[in-house]
Nucleic acid binder design. Structure first.
Length: 498
RNA sequence: GUCCCCUUCGUCUAGUGGUUAGGACACCGGGUUUUCAUCCCGGCAACGGGAGUUCAAUUCUCCCAGGGGAUGCCA
């Protein structure tokens, strides 16, 4: 049977790096076995779902560059792929369970859920201290006569439908990664809500019904879902369906060992994009969180990953998200870009910084192209480009004298060095890097300076900073006349400061 | 509290009874160099603890400890 897997996000927030990792693993698995990857929108939380987040979902995956074979936007034989459009289906199935005696109507108010989480925790703790045997819902309505319950429900009394968890016995399953896991039914969440009072299904119902109806063969999801697995198994059994194979992926943690969240740093994929991460770097890094491929290699393209992926290389232990290592990957991928590609990537950042017009002029583009090789190995993020290239597109402030001093040189000495440098600059061809260096080196020796003594003040004068791409190449891109002009102004400042 | 999952360098991992426990990032040295980077070389650094099984355990079993997750009309 052909494998069918799905990514089933709820559009209640920006796409999170953790969920995208789950999506990626599902995608890689599907590709590695020639299966089908499906997107299903779980928008059953009416108050939190929003179209803006659906748009963010599409934008995110378009950027990442891996896509689903079936989904709300591309269609497919098992649609619709948006749960709100499958509304009637869930009620039908919930009713069916009630008719079979596997679920029941509940008329309790949901005052507990209206409280804040903390309050609920305190309640539970208090209940436990008092020696309460159970936890969660006390199964109050489970004993109502079914006929009467039906009458009350039909008469319009507000209600939910709850699943009857067997009071004894055990429920278990074989996790592809974790092996056999089982629970005493007495330890399973007592009678979870399947259909909410607004008629929408909860995750549990919608998930099981849709996975079955959509022919899902493998469910790969984060380990935080393990405790709800028995609920789902009980439902599959109640419906008389075969459950899909389950595989619970290790969680992604922050450096403090807790579930990765905003306080650890960027978590929305959008944030990574805006910071100037390359999608290939992000995919490469995230794919390696909790999974290994070829030993001794760390750079993998999406195609490589899809080919090499295998469930038995997934780790059981949770993984800490390491921003520093991701940064290293980003640098690697930036360096792999051709000059043309790099220009294409940094242009939006140059435009956003106001250094380059929108659209860029031909001169700006050729300037960027000439400068690309100078900054390629210096960028950690694409967003570093404006700062690194600012001197080419904007006039830097004339630096104060102190800023220009090389190590161990005073103002007078620096003025002398810069004077010599400016004069020499007028006589050389800046595009001939080797010749320039030879000429400056000779001049430095002649005057008793080091090469750096000549170059540092010139660098600061021309680029406005002590840190810049290689000087001669920078000057070649900028134009010698402009460089000389800046250097003369700086020289005047130095002389005035003697 | 209860249930469930997990446990190799600081981090990501390789390893499936016998290895000097390997690699990557980070860190620390050194080299190249025109600042900053890149690049190259070297170094530091791990099998949570205790019982077993075995000629032999990082590898298998059990217990403990530690960490995490769940315990919603959110997913």
């Amino acid at each position: 049977m052909k494998a069918r897997v799905r990514y089933a996000p709820s559009p209640t927030g920006l796409q999170h790096i953790g969920s995208v990792r789950t999506a990626l693993f599902n995608y890689l698995f599907a590709r590695s076995v020639g299966g089908t990857f499906i997107l299903r929108l779980e928008d059953t939380d009416r108050t939190r779902s929003s179209d803006a987040y659906v748009k963010n979902l599409y934008d995110t995956f378009r950027w990442l560059g891996f896509y689903w074979d079936e989904g709300p936007d591309v269609g497919g034989p098992a649609g619709p792929y948006t749960q709100s459009e499958r509304f009637a289906l869930y009620r039908e199935h919930a009713d069916r369970l009630v008719e079979m005696g596997k679920a029941y109507y509940c008329f309790c108010s949901d005052e507990k859920s209206a409280k804040k989480d903390d309050a609920v925790d305190e309640d539970d703790a208090a209940a436990a201290e008092q020696g309460a045997t159970g936890f969660g819902y006390p199964r109050t309505c489970r004993s109502i006569d079914p006929a009467e319950a039906k009458r009350r429900a039909d008469s319009g009394e507000p209600h939910v439908i709850r699943l009857k968890i067997p009071l004894d016995g055990v429920t278990g399953f074989d996790d592809i990664l974790l092996g056999h896991i089982e629970w005493k039914n007495a330890d399973v969440n007592p009678d979870p809500v399947l259909l909410k009072s607004d008629g929408f299904p909860t995750y549990h119902l919608a998930n099981v019904v849709d996975d079955h109806l959509m022919g899902i063969t493998h469910v790969m999801r984060a380990q935080e879902w393990i405790p709800s697995a028995p609920l789902h198994i009980i439902m599959y059994e109640a419906f008389g369906w075969d459950p899909p194979q389950l595989c619970h992926l290790p969680m992604v943690l922050g450096e403090d060992g807790h579930k990765l969240s905003k306080r650890h740093g960027a978590t929305a994929v959008d944030e990574f994009r805006k910071k100037g991460y390359l999608e290939a770097a992000l995919i490469n890094y995230v794919a390696m969180l909790g999974c290994s491929y070829e030993d001794g290699r760390d750079i993998f393209s999406l195609e490589d990953l899809a080919r090499l992926f295998s469930m038995d290389h997934i780790n059981k232990a949770p993984a800490v998200f390491d921003y520093v290592k991701l940064e290293w990957f980003n640098g690697q991928y930036i360096r792999m870009l051709s000059d043309e590609e790099l220009v294409g990537r940094i242009t939006p950042f140059m435009v956003a910084s106001g250094l380059v017009s929108e659209p860029p002029s031909a001169a700006q583009t050729s300037g960027l192209l000439a400068a690309a090789p100078l900054v390629k190995e210096r960028l950690k993020y694409l967003s570093d480009a404006p700062e690194a290239l600012r001197f080419l597109f904007a006039e830097p402030a004339v630096p104060p004298a102190a800023e220009m001093l090389p190590k161990k040189l005073d103002v007078a000495g620096t003025a002398k060095a810069l004077d010599a440098a400016v004069e020499l600059l007028g006589t050389v061809d800046p595009s001939d890097h080797d010749a320039c260096e030879a000429a400056f080196r000779a001049k430095a020796t002649e005057l008793g300076f080091k090469l750096g003594d000549l170059l540092m003040p010139l660098r600061v004068a021309v680029t406005g900073t002590k840190v810049s791409p290689p000087l001669f190449q920078s000057i070649a891109v900028l134009g010698r006349d402009k460089a000389v002009e800046r250097a003369r102004k700086a020289l005047a400042v130095l002389r005035a400061a003697i």
